[in-house]
Design a protein around this nucleic acid. Sequence first.
DNA 1: TGTACATCAGTGAACGCGCGTTCACTGATGTAC
DNA 2: TGTACATCAGTGAACGCGCGTTCACTGATGTAC
Lengths: 213, 213
Amino acid sequence: MDVSAPSTRDRIIAAAEYLFAERGFAETSLRLITSRAEVNLASVNYHFGSKKDLIQAVFDRFMDRLTVELADELASLRQQGGKPTAESVLTTFLRPLQALDQLEPNGASIFMRLLGRAYAETQGHLRRFVLEKYGHVLAEFTQSLMQAHPELPANELFWRLHFMLGSLVFAIGGSNALGEISAADFDEEVGLNDVVARLIPFLAGGFKAPVAR
Amino acid sequence: MDVSAPSTRDRIIAAAEYLFAERGFAETSLRLITSRAEVNLASVNYHFGSKKDLIQAVFDRFMDRLTVELADELASLRQQGGKPTAESVLTTFLRPLQALDQLEPNGASIFMRLLGRAYAETQGHLRRFVLEKYGHVLAEFTQSLMQAHPELPANELFWRLHFMLGSLVFAIGGSNALGEISAADFDEEVGLNDVVARLIPFLAGGFKAPVAR
DNA sequence: TGTACATCAGTGAACGCGCGTTCACTGATGTAC
DNA sequence: TGTACATCAGTGAACGCGCGTTCACTGATGTAC
């Protein structure tokens, strides 16, 4: 078995995904990453080529994990047959997201913040990259939502999907900060699972709403 | 009457708010701002003291405009009497937001992106500043929502407010990019007013949803 | 009304600093014959 | 099995560059007497 210490490459990725989510891409210097990872500064460029490529690699690792599980969930939903509900389709996305938290502490929150940052990027090269590489899984997800709400026109669904994405990025990406406020104001500890449990009826209610005339 | 060219200070603010929203705080250099504004580099520090203070000033100007109008809307909603609906309360916030677009091109989108960036900030000094200075208006807004949905516990309302905020930041802040996609995919021009019209039933549906057990 | 001084808005050039990247180099491991 | 060479992972120091900020300065306007 392999009990060796994590490789330099893995140490860089681990430090980078934490810092990128915490501080943003531009605000995170390679020196900060390498000193957190306790590796040589030059090793980032050795392993990844450039800072830009490192960002891509970090993002890609999350997306790979997520889309595999999302595809599984969607397949088993379809296998059940019948008309799915908004709640059940949302769960196919939220369950793999929760699984990221098992994989590493705060994994879901880190990923959502990365996703938000990727969207906020001006150039949008990450956005394009996501659609090219993972577009087919996302299209499957949209398909299932359409089955749950066949009364919604495609363009209405498009907007509602983005309203949903905004809620997810904001609430799950900021769940640490929001959870602290909640703990202080309402004497209530809030974990990812609690946020997800609150999100499902809210978002499902949104999808069920009539289209504006 | 004053027909003079805008002052150096105003030129800086105008250039900065555009570039901050477009590129983010860290990615926008003072040289970029001053060359866009066609003013001297040193004048930023002369008028604002530091880059950090400029960010604060830009943000503050939007918040000032918005909260005054939001307070007006809330007052006239209360004056109508009776139990408000989720839709009417949401409108008290969305109407002032739409007014920002009249004030300058893409004003609403720029402001929402600034708000998103302010929230994403690690230090959160902007977030704290917002709550201290404008907390009373936001509390009034929350009050009205509570009247519309007295069945929602305070902590549930807290989370739903942030789900809403996420949708707004994401959809309105990204309305240019999303509008372009929509125009390409659905042959449909989408302006701020269309996005708002779609948002209201979606969010109202979310607030009306039963609380998860 | 005239003079002296103070304040204000703005400028041009330079400052030190942290940044991403590069480069020549080392030592360990793998491969060919 | 032994030798020669190639590849790989990693290193330390330096590179030029763009950054926010500072500073001595200018010229216009305002104020006091």
